[in-house]
Design a binder for these strands. Structure first.
Lengths: 227, 227
DNA sequence: TTCATACTTCGACCATAGCCGAAGCATTGC
DNA sequence: GCAATGCTTCGGCTATGGTCGAAGTATGAA
């Protein structure tokens, strides 16, 4: 009589302190990388990797590769619900650890991520392009529409040159501070570069922060902002 | 970094197959004894005892001694809620094991339990006495009120004789099929005996079933039934 | 009182699984 | 191409904790 109802299998997964830390960190809704989660759990990356593999096999978390990072989020609302119920039981209270994203508000607002735009601005950009029918999102892949190609050329981007490179034009990239996606790939990089060229924004020395000028901010909202 | 948030402590408790079986069995709402739970869990009584002690220390179950038995129930609705959430995750479905009480409907209706009345009738009796102000319930202890003493004497019970014995007059006893309490102790025994003397009911040979006659049923409802 | 039943405690055994160091892929950036 | 970074796999160590036999305690019945 070694195997009980499945409930014990699930609970045992949550029962390990390292995994509980991982899940608790993910409760905030943010997507985190394996290395970050290892830090949260207080174990080495290889140990965390093993834990993450188990959690994923049980469909308690989802993962998404993005470049050389692997971002993890909770598997479903059911998982979050179960965790909340358990937290309710752990009446010790005050253990909720509502983690916020990056401490620095400027980083949350706009920053570079592999030389493309991330943060709130990055998400706005991505959603704006989608809403305007310039990007097409399909099953993990993002492509530029014909309308999008015209638009970007008008914006001052040499698409023909980008197409000659072997790096993909578009790629979605999961955000660190929020869990939405933003635009990566050579197009994402080119857009940020063009924004700097146009004087809309500039990188702050020594940091990943991107600062928009008042005029740049207005122009950005006009061209890419939410409809 | 060995200790995480309390959530892991709770989940680890549920994570053991034997304990998960115990909790699942208790989900049905019935109070079960340590030995019964050992059977459910598929382990020996001493192992079950250790598990039950841990679950009780974590306030996930409550226990109540009743004679030489120890009845266990879930600790709170929060516990049941958390278990349900976990069952939702264990999508394997069909694992709910909604246990019913004793198979025999007659046993659920009325039976003897250490020579006092148990089952639905026993619960009705207990509640009827409480509602009429003949019993006083206080903190695990049940006592007869002055009004109750008069009533029982009129019913034909020799309280003076019972008081000479060293066994307690009243005691509450947790039911097997429902989880409410019923009346045990020498008074509980005397009431059942008097019901049989009056011809209201009689025990069925070789079983624990108590059969009420139509007249006895009517009289019982009249004297002890819910108001 | 004596026996039977229900439960607990003790002690020892043993398997599971968490942990890390080291080495191996894979992807990006120069 | 090469170096750097992020993640995974492998192997072996260790400890936590579940398990049961045996003995001990408490309660009820004869």
């Amino acid at each position: 009589m070694k195997d009980g109802p499945d409930i014990s299998r699930i609970a045992a997964l949550i029962g390990d302190p390292a995994r509980a830390n991982i899940l608790t960190a993910l409760m905030a809704g943010k997507a985190l990388t394996a290395t970050e989660l290892a830090g949260e759990a207080g174990v080495t990356v290889q140990t965390a990797s093993a834990h993450l593999a188990k959690l994923e096999a049980a469909e308690m978390i989802q993962c998404r590769k993005s470049g050389r990072h692997k971002y993890f989020t909770l598997g479903s609302d059911d998982v979050a619900h179960a965790l909340e119920a358990l937290m309710g039981l752990a009446a010790g209270a005050g253990h909720l650890r509502t983690r916020t994203g990056p401490r620095d508000a400027a980083l949350r607002e706009a920053r570079v991520c592999y030389s493309h735009l991330a943060g709130e601005k990055g998400i706005t950009l991505y959603q704006g392009l989608l809403a305007r029918g310039m990007l097409h999102e399909a099953e993990e892949a993002v492509t530029l529409t014909a309308k999008g190609e015209v638009f970007l050329t008008d914006f001052g981007i040499d698409l023909a040159a980008l197409k000659r490179s072997k790096t993909p034009l578009c790629r979605s990239c999961l955000d660190w501070s929020a869990r939405q996606t933003h635009l990566a790939g050579s197009v994402g990089r080119a857009i940020l570069a063009q924004m700097q060229t146009l004087g809309w924004a500039q990188r702050e020395d020594g940091t990943r922060v991107v600062r928009f000028s008042p005029e740049g901010e207005a122009a950005f909202q006009d061209v890419f902002g939410r409809l």
